[in-house]
Amino acid sequence: MSKKPGGTAADERAARLKAALKANLGRRKGQAKARASADEGVAPEGSPQSDVDSGAGEG
């Protein structure tokens, strides 16, 4: 790749944006993973999953 004169500012900006996006994606993936592991196996009171597990509603 050949660099154009005056194009270094745009290249630096693109590199900063790329790094920021990568960091943001990593942060969001970590949050999603933490949320998923916290929700795993935990059903709120009165949800269909907890009704099925407790046997409620069978008649």
Rank of each mutant, 00 (worst) to 15 (best):
M1I: 11
S2G: 10
S2T: 11
S2K: 08
S2P: 01
S2M: 07
S2D: 14
K3E: 15
K3R: 12
K3C: 06
K4L: 13
K4A: 14
P5K: 14
P5M: 03
P5A: 07
G6Y: 14
G7K: 06
G7R: 02
T8S: 11
T8N: 08
T8G: 09
T8F: 01
A10M: 12
A10C: 07
A10S: 14
D11P: 00
D11E: 15
D11S: 14
D11L: 14
D11F: 02
E12S: 07
E12W: 03
R13A: 13
R13D: 12
A14L: 08
A14C: 10
A15F: 03
A15L: 05
R16Q: 14
R16M: 09
A19S: 10
A19C: 00
A19F: 04
A20H: 11
K22A: 06
L25Y: 07
R27F: 04
R28D: 04
R28T: 08
R28I: 07
G30E: 15
Q31D: 11
Q31L: 06
Q31E: 13
A32T: 06
A32F: 01
A32G: 03
A32I: 00
A34M: 04
A34Q: 11
R35S: 13
R35V: 02
S37M: 13
S37F: 06
S37L: 14
D39H: 08
E40S: 11
E40T: 04
G41W: 07
V42Q: 12
V42M: 08
A43L: 01
P44V: 06
E45P: 08
S47P: 02
P48F: 06
P48V: 08
Q49Y: 02
Q49P: 00
Q49H: 03
S50C: 02
V52N: 02
V52D: 04
V52I: 11
V52H: 01
V52K: 05
D53E: 15
G55N: 08
G55C: 09
A56L: 12
A56F: 13
G57P: 04
E58D: 13
E58G: 10
E58R: 14
G59M: 05
G59F: 12
